[in-house]
Design a protein around this nucleic acid. Sequence first.
DNA 1: ATCCAGGCAGATG
DNA 2: CATCTGCATGGA
Length: 271
Amino acid sequence: MNFEIEKTPTFNLSQTLNCGQVFRFREESGITVVNALHHRAEFIEFEDRYEVDCDDAEFFKKYLDFDTNYDIIQLKLQDKGLVSSAIEFGKGIHILRQSPVETIFSFLVSQNNHIPRIKSIIERICDALGRDMGGYHAFPEVGALAEAGEDFFYGVGAGYRAPYLARTARELADIDVAEWNALPTDKLRQKLEALHGVGRKVADCVLLFGFNRFDVFPVDTWISKVFAPTYGDIAPEKLSKLLVEKYGDCSGFVQQWLFFFKREEKKSPKV
DNA sequence: ATCCAGGCAGATG
DNA sequence: CATCTGCATGGA
């Protein structure tokens, strides 16, 4: 065991992993395995804590975002309405601090796709191109992705996204994406949207999950459904802008709570 | 079996 | 600027 995590009301591992922000994890009975970049952690759940066995404790403490005070954020966002309900339902969610490159390719795969399929496609990409870490494979280097080519991505089931993945990999091959972190959110979004296959939604997911910008509100089919009663049939980008105006620097958190709330409701409809 | 999924690029009003 | 369409795949 490398470190342990006390269970608190504002951290729940399963909620954090299952709220749609991350795809490389596996939950079994009482044990959860998470892969991020070339790292891996195993979480064993006890009544009051998780014991974490991993290759880099500092990496995972940062990854799990224990530096953010979720109590304050949750308190601030209470609206005695939908957002309060969503927070109550998903109060254990943390927004992970993921790798920008891993989120770019993951959310390219995610578009117009089901989450179980997204996970399996990403796993096949890692197994084929990622460094063998002994028992698992790392997320591939951009260079390896760039060399793979379209045919490879069709081969792993990416479908029409294969050219997006291949071309974006080549576009990123000579770039250090981490340097984009110096840019303000709107300029950074422009950089992302210039990548082939990256539109507003994927860019906003990368901004939120890979660059941890919280002044973004990714609008997908689920979020559109959430707000259809109040805003009607509105273009996703328009809706996103309205919601960022409303929620400001907390937009990303609100989005994640509402997304999880709506999706879980769908999975197990109330009787 | 038919529908649809954390949308996008490209073409057309 | 806004709206429309085709798209690969496989889980439900």
